[in-house]
Simulated scan of single mutants.
Amino acid sequence: MPRVSQERLDARRRQILDAASRCFARNGFHATSMQDVLKEADLSAGAVYRYFSGKEELIAAIVGSVLAEVREAFEEAVLESPPPPPDVLIGTVLRRILHRQPTLGEAGESLYPRLMIQVWAETLRNPELHAILEGGFAEVRKPWIKIVEAYQDAGMMRADIPALSVARTMVALAQGVVAQYALFGDVPIQGVELGVQALMSMGDPRTRD
């Protein structure tokens, strides 16, 4: 009997995760059953349980996948020397997250903002998921810190402020935009970029002659 290729196994796993993501984004974790996931994926129970033992494992895998996507986006920016300015960097990463496949429904709305809101809410009651998210965001902050240090080395940013403080603030900005997108619909990313530009242009009037 021919062995199933790793590529096919990975594709099937992705199919299940995408189906579960759509279900969770639409109805939340608690209102979604494994039967809902099976129906959405158009697969048998045996096919799904071969990859995931249940809903909790699916949730953890989805959270890990989303965090890896965000981390990868910023790790790519670290390779540039100096990295792009904050407005360009944040805009690039937001477009990658908000326009990422799969989408939700016929309108083509990205499901990840709604899914992230569900994840954050679930984290408040699920210690295991909290640990995954906490560790994931610690990894996400690492490339941010490297980016800030590169700004400081290039003279683009004040060097007397801890890089971690700046990194946390930039992550919070990206999270806030994702939350607005999930709650209120499409958020013009160009507007976010312009807002960051305006904040970057501010000077301290107390230092003027």
Rank of each mutant, 00 (worst) to 15 (best):
32 T>L: 08
67 L>T: 04
172 A>Y: 06
8 R>F: 14
202 M>V: 13
113 P>A: 11
41 A>Q: 05
44 S>Y: 04
74 F>L: 14
5 S>A: 15
80 E>L: 15
42 D>A: 13
115 L>Q: 03
116 M>W: 12
41 A>R: 01
45 A>M: 09
76 E>I: 06
93 V>N: 01
147 I>S: 00
24 F>Y: 13
129 L>Y: 04
95 R>K: 14
163 A>N: 07
71 R>T: 13
184 F>Y: 14
117 I>A: 10
12 R>L: 13
30 H>R: 06
107 A>F: 02
83 P>C: 11
92 T>C: 08
150 A>M: 10
85 P>E: 15
193 E>Q: 15
47 A>Y: 00
208 R>W: 14
206 R>Y: 14
160 D>G: 11
33 S>E: 13
68 A>I: 08
199 L>Q: 12
28 G>W: 07
23 C>A: 07
116 M>L: 12
174 A>G: 10
117 I>R: 07
179 A>S: 13
185 G>A: 01
77 A>Q: 15
158 R>H: 12
154 A>Y: 03
103 T>I: 09
203 G>N: 07
205 P>A: 04
114 R>G: 06
27 N>Y: 05
194 L>I: 11
2 P>D: 07
167 A>Y: 09
146 K>Q: 15
66 V>P: 07
56 E>P: 01
192 V>N: 01
118 Q>T: 13
52 F>K: 03
188 P>Q: 08
159 A>M: 04
32 T>F: 02
23 C>V: 02
